[in-house]
């Protein structure tokens, strides 16, 4: 098992999770997530040799395929979709776009 969670670990995870944390949150989460990891450590006591993992409990999959024909179907109106956008260009003749900050330098 990994060693004690450090604040460097928390900063690294925050970057992976795309969340900026302030110094107070880094300290708090280092302690709390460390406690949660210590708590879940009890699972190591369980003998799981040869036990398959369960990712989904859905059992109907074998009998009822979730596939459907690959056909064009109606989708949401572009104007309805853009109505929730924090920033959008709705003036384009093709119906508009989401607008985002600079992606590459």
């Amino acid at each position: 098992m990994p060693a004690q969670l450090t604040s460097d670990d928390v900063v690294r995870i925050a970057a992976l999770a795309n969340v900026t944390l302030d110094p107070r949150e880094i300290a708090l989460f280092t302690r709390q997530i460390g406690e949660l990891l210590a708590y879940v450590e009890q699972l190591q006591q369980v003998d799981t040799a040869g036990v398959p993992p369960t990712a989904s409990v859905r059992r109907g999959a074998a009998g009822a395929s979730a596939d459907r024909p690959d056909e064009v179907r109606p989708s949401l109106e572009i104007a309805d979709t853009l109505a929730n956008a924090p920033d959008a260009d709705r003036s384009q003749m093709e119906g508009g776009f989401f607008r985002v900050p600079r992606v590459i330098g």
């Binding site: 098992m1 990994p2 990891l37 879940v40 699972l43 190591q44 369980v46 799981t48 036990v51 398959p52 993992p53 369960t54 990712a55």
Partner: peptide
């Protein structure tokens, strides 16, 4: 493996 896979195995149990 240590956390997520282990949890899914105990889920089976």
């Amino acid at each position: 493996d240590a956390y997520y896979l282990k949890a899914q195995q105990v889920r089976t149990l």
